[in-house]
Amino acid sequence: MAKFSLGGDDDGGGPSNPTPKRRRIAVSCGIVGEDERQEIGNPSGTEDERDDIVQELEVLQGEEDLRNDDSGNCFGARSSNCGEDNNVFAPENRDRSISVTLSDPDVFDCCICYEPLSIPIFQCENGHIACSSCCVKLGNKCPTCSMPIGYNRCRAIEKVLESVKISCLNAQYGCKETIIYSKKIDHEKQCIYAPRTCPHSGCNFVAPSKELSLHFRRKHGDSARNFTYNCFFSIFLRVNDEVIVLQEQNGADLFMLKNKVGDLGNIVNVSCVCPNSFQKACHYDILARSQGCCLKIHCLAENNPGRKANNTAPTGFLLVPSWFFDSSGQLKLDIRIN
């Protein structure tokens, strides 16, 4: 539950009061508040007195309008007193941000897909909310009450989401960015401080991309196959090899050549370990030749956070039949990473 605390008083109108609340701010520039006007205009006075008071209030209201422009700045002959004595209209007081403690972060997640809510957000007649993609998947039928959903926007939650900013999940690894909650997943996918696991077997070192590259070069550099971007290089792959680490010799970027034995042959693909901040996608080519036959694939190098996450099924790969391997169980592959 999010708890908000704002300065200032209201007029006492509760949720059941149809009259909108007014914020009451004390200003010592001679401006009369709403409650004070009611007290001054008490019917106990004479009619002439009430007329004089009304005229005086109108004059004061006109002066107030002249002193304040749309941005809340204080103008006029008395502006210096407003800024110096009370500091009400000073620029530093225009920051209306508040601290919020969110005891249940899931309140900002879609109750259907459990992903962070993103604008537009829709609600049914009973107030149940869902993200736009879930509304379509459910045939615009609320899963909670079966009422139609996906036609009425929930503007209140949208405004809250636009105002809520959180620290990056990778703050402990050095990221100092604060992002809008609805952009949380997009940022985490591109954050250069996302933790990566060392691809070397038996090493549990975890660090952001740049640190991991330097760590691998210093500690495990001899175990990697160095290569240069946009140039073909050769790898001798054995049938049961699971991972061969590839490191670009200039930028120290890390890749993994992964090999998995299947029923129809070996599944081979290349994934990028780090960095996580490529401005352009990395593609790779793999060529396999045997007995006059040639197999070739051109594919996008998927992002992989490290050796421990290599159980995920790749979207692109080269299927090499078992008879492509020679009698010693080896196969020469020509690889180019662009």
Results as ranks from 00 to 15, higher is better:
R336M: 14
S146C: 12
T19C: 05
L264H: 06
S277E: 13
S132K: 08
S271Y: 04
D69Q: 06
P321N: 07
V268G: 00
N81P: 00
S16T: 09
L257V: 05
C175T: 05
I297G: 02
A252Y: 13
Q249P: 00
Q249M: 13
Q291D: 15
S5L: 13
V160I: 15
T46L: 12
I337P: 02
V160G: 00
A207V: 04
F324N: 03
R50A: 12
N126V: 00
D106I: 06
I112E: 14
P20R: 05
I244T: 13
K332T: 11
P43L: 09
E158H: 03
T315W: 08
L264M: 07
A156F: 04
K280S: 13
K165N: 02
L319I: 05
Q55R: 10
E115A: 14
I235F: 11
G45K: 13
C282A: 10
S97A: 12
V136I: 14
M147T: 05
V136D: 15
T144M: 12
L57M: 11
P321K: 03
K189L: 13
E47M: 09
F317G: 00
S99D: 15
E63H: 08
K280G: 01
P208T: 03
K280C: 07
K296A: 12
A288Q: 03
L214T: 09
P18K: 02
E49W: 10
D48V: 06
D9V: 14
I25D: 09
